[in-house]
Amino acid sequence: MEPLPQLLIVDDEPINIQMLSAALKDSYRIRFATRAEQALDLACRFVPDLILLDVIMPGKSGYDLCRELKSTPGLANVPVIFVTGRTGREDEAHGLAVGGADYLFKPVHPKIVKARVDNHIMLKRYRERLELLAMQDALTEVGNHRRFEMTLEQEWSRLKRTGRPLTLLILDVDHFRHYNETYGLPEGDRCLQGIARELRQCMRRPLDLVCRIGGASFACLLPETERHGAAVVAEGIREMIAGLEMPHQGSPIGPFVTLSIGVAVAEQVVGLEATGLIGAADESLYQAKTEGRNRVGDLRILNEAEPVPVPPSPQKAEIHESDAI
């Protein structure tokens, strides 16, 4: 059964929170905050499906909070409905201008607020389905390169806020050019589809993500996965694909389809960029390939207290797009 959508109610008056909760609790999971700072923290941690926001609160106003939400990666597309006693047309126009999706005047009728929330949740779900299609690889039905880049940006921002590690795996099908030459392009497509299905099975938590980032290259993003877990997952994936024993007569390293995997973990990265994590994983992948393939490269660590890995040369960076070595 699909979980109920999450709402965040932000109001400094408990009676208003109680009234809105009573109207919505049967259809939604409710969290609430009484201050803007508390609301932003909750939104970053739980990413609600919709926010009901008062305008006048102690400290930061609802307008200011809405601006901040719309500039925060991962929260910009969360609809905000202002629920306020400020009934002037200029107030309403200002609320919409700063990013509000709707504007309700207090006192609100429970059926009206429920209908407005239902409508905006439905529209959000529809937009998400369209966006997902736009960020899905047509052949394998996993994420495409665009989704990888967008998700990495979001997870990098979260890593900076929380300090929780982020693991990146870059995976290459070994000698895939020879596979296509041996079996033909249609069979090559079926091979990639099968690998993608298996990789999806390995992404067991809601935030884990697999994307196809090149011809025979995949990337796995594993939020909140530390060093030991990264190595275990990478080796488990390599063994799983090898264990399928998919024939590969064109491979010079064995009779079956295999993977080479680069693995990197970002830890404390306040002063670093996400491109460093990609460079570190690429270096690990390059090592796995030069040492014979069908293996996991040495784990690379990205930490602001440690030297940043040198980004790979263009030849190394493109190695997961070809069988150059």
Rank of each mutant, 00 (worst) to 15 (best):
V257N: 05
V257A: 05
V257Q: 07
V257F: 08
T258P: 02
T258R: 04
L259Y: 10
L259K: 09
L259A: 12
L259W: 10
L259M: 11
L259Q: 11
S260P: 10
S260T: 13
S260K: 06
S260N: 07
S260F: 07
I261V: 15
I261T: 14
I261E: 03
I261M: 06
I261C: 06
G262A: 10
G262T: 14
V263N: 03
V263Y: 01
V263F: 02
V263E: 01
A264N: 11
A264H: 09
A264F: 05
A264G: 13
V265F: 05
V265L: 04
V265P: 07
V265M: 05
V265W: 05
V265K: 07
A266E: 09
A266K: 03
A266R: 03
A266S: 09
E267P: 00
E267D: 10
E267H: 13
E267K: 11
Q268C: 06
Q268Y: 04
Q268W: 02
Q268P: 00
Q268F: 01
V269G: 02
V269W: 01
V269Q: 01
V269Y: 01
V269S: 08
V269H: 02
V269N: 01
V270P: 00
V270E: 15
V270W: 06
V270L: 13
V270Q: 15
V270K: 12
V270G: 02
V270S: 14
V270D: 14
G271L: 06
G271Y: 01
G271C: 06
G271H: 12
G271Q: 13
L272V: 08
L272I: 13
L272N: 02
E273Y: 00
E273N: 07
E273F: 00
E273S: 09
E273P: 00
A274S: 15
A274L: 03
T275F: 00
T275E: 13
T275N: 11
T275M: 01
G276K: 08
G276E: 09
G276F: 06
G276Q: 09
G276R: 08
G276V: 12
L277F: 09
L277Y: 08
L277T: 11
L277E: 06
I278D: 03
I278T: 15
I278G: 04
I278C: 11
I278L: 15
I278K: 12
G279V: 07
G279M: 03
G279F: 03
G279W: 01
G279K: 04
G279P: 04
A280W: 03
A280T: 10
A281R: 08
A281V: 13
A281Y: 06
A281G: 11
A281T: 13
D282A: 15
D282S: 15
D282C: 09
D282Y: 00
D282R: 07
E283F: 00
E283N: 15
E283T: 15
E283G: 03
S284R: 08
S284V: 12
S284A: 15
S284N: 08
S284D: 07
S284F: 06
L285P: 09
L285N: 09
L285R: 07
L285E: 05
Y286W: 11
Y286F: 14
Y286E: 00
Y286K: 02
Y286T: 15
Q287I: 11
Q287D: 05
Q287M: 02
Q287L: 08
Q287K: 11
Q287S: 12
A288C: 01
A288N: 02
A288F: 01
A288S: 14
A288K: 03
A288P: 04
